[in-house]
Design a binder for these strands. Structure first.
Lengths: 235, 235
DNA sequence: CGCGTCCAATGACTTGCGTCAAGCGCAAAA
DNA sequence: TTTTGCGCTTGACGCAAGTCATTGGACGCG
């Protein structure tokens, strides 16, 4: 949507953590030639639920949320995307419309890879498609775990897990405690699957209990109970 | 676990609806030669959450449930498997232990395909692996939709969706109304993600409202409201 | 500068739904 | 037959959590 500058994939800082680290060199060059890199501002929508996909997006830099909008308009965040990740592959592979909306959580730089090229490379490159299956399996595993927790665990516990999940996904700032992303209380609630007020109240409780510190949108993790460890969404 | 009889894949009645309809002929023969077919009795466990996978299972005949057991021991059913479907691929592809337990809902006949062979064929056969990705994408889509509904919809609505989902999965009996599977109330509850008593109460309500008929484990669908249609778990 | 908007926070109220407990029918075992 | 046990059903109760409403602070804008 703006400022295309197309950095070479080979130089991409997340080259080795992304799916494409498995791709053959020649295929990487093909992708490199065809991709279009754009930057998006915080809050901007990259693609919309219901639209037809024309390719996949690879995050060069930034953070994205993928969310469903429920029938009553409430949003449910189903995935957090970081640099090196790709998104939009689900709709592409099943040849359907997007089931989620992608919105930038901060200013981001994102490469677009056209559908035909991506599918062609996927056909030719067995290790790339194997990696793709690995990613899909992992996402499916996380989703099924989330289903179980949503059905069985109280909000308090789910919120705690969510905070740890955010930590696993985006990591911590230099101080070693602050979550390296700014989310509104509403976004946190939509990630947990609860009402905004409930999320706020429980965050206050966590703070009172000395588990976290709050400063605006900054959240610092102090003593998150170990119990959660066994049940979180790690890879 | 019993009665191996190994019917040829080429003759399998679900040959054309399964993932293997996309596989190359020569690869199909390889699989045919290596697979082991067994029959399982109702209630029998095919594989257990936490165990290491040694291959994938392809349902020849029967019905299976895949379920997580929550920390408190409560079961959450995450998938219903039917003839022609495969299961166990997620653990295999991500090279982790099973995250779910597979239990036969009725007497079933299931083929086992060894890990190495399956992965090899997957490497060689692009259209098979593409089909695999399609399946994974579709499962992921359903899982994300279920997450949204669990987070946002009341139990009554989720139960109605679940009944329609069962219908989509296993179909109806000859009378055109009765769900073609027998599930306990507890299993229905574990599919919906609610307490058994709630499921029972709401089923009674549905009956009183003339939406369904109940006769033991038989459930006949009469007038399920159209509203649900837009939000169900179809393919 | 004051005004409006957005978001966080908290209190009060309501309720969906989970838990507990008791009764019932049916089928297998003794 | 009686007994035992299991799954289904219904009622009563309590609480977690959702909804509604108010306040206050931060920020941008005319």
């Amino acid at each position: 949507m703006s400022t295309p500058l197309n950095p070479a994939c080979q130089n991409c800082k997340d080259r080795f953590s992304s799916i494409f680290c498995k791709a053959d060199h020649s295929n990487l060059e093909l992708i490199d030639a065809a991709k279009v890199c754009s930057s998006y501002k915080k809050g901007q929508v990259i693609f919309h639920e219901g639209a037809y996909p024309f390719g996949v997006y690879c995050i060069n830099d930034g953070k994205i949320k993928l969310s469903h909008s429920g029938d009553d308009g409430r949003e449910q965040i189903v995935r957090l995307v970081k640099a090196g990740d790709i998104m939009g592959y689900k709709a592409l592979l099943s040849n359907e419309r997007y089931t989620a909306t992608a919105t930038a959580l901060e200013d981001s730089s994102i490469c677009f890879i056209p559908k035909d090229l991506f599918l062609n490379v996927l056909q030719k490159d067995a290790s790339l498609s194997f990696e793709m299956m690995r990613i899909l399996s992992s996402e499916l595993r996380k989703a099924e775990l989330k289903i179980t927790h949503l059905a069985q665990k109280p909000v308090r516990e789910r919120l705690a897990e969510t905070l740890l999940f955010i930590k696993e996904t985006y990591g911590l700032e230099a101080d070693g405690h602050t979550l390296n992303v700014r989310l509104s209380r509403e976004e946190i609630a939509n990630l947990v699957g609860t009402a905004t007020e409930s999320a706020i109240r429980l965050l206050s409780e966590f703070k009172k209990d000395g588990m976290i510190e709050l400063e605006g949108k900054k959240i610092r993790l102090l003593d998150m109970p170990e119990i959660i460890r066994t049940a979180n969404l790690h890879d």
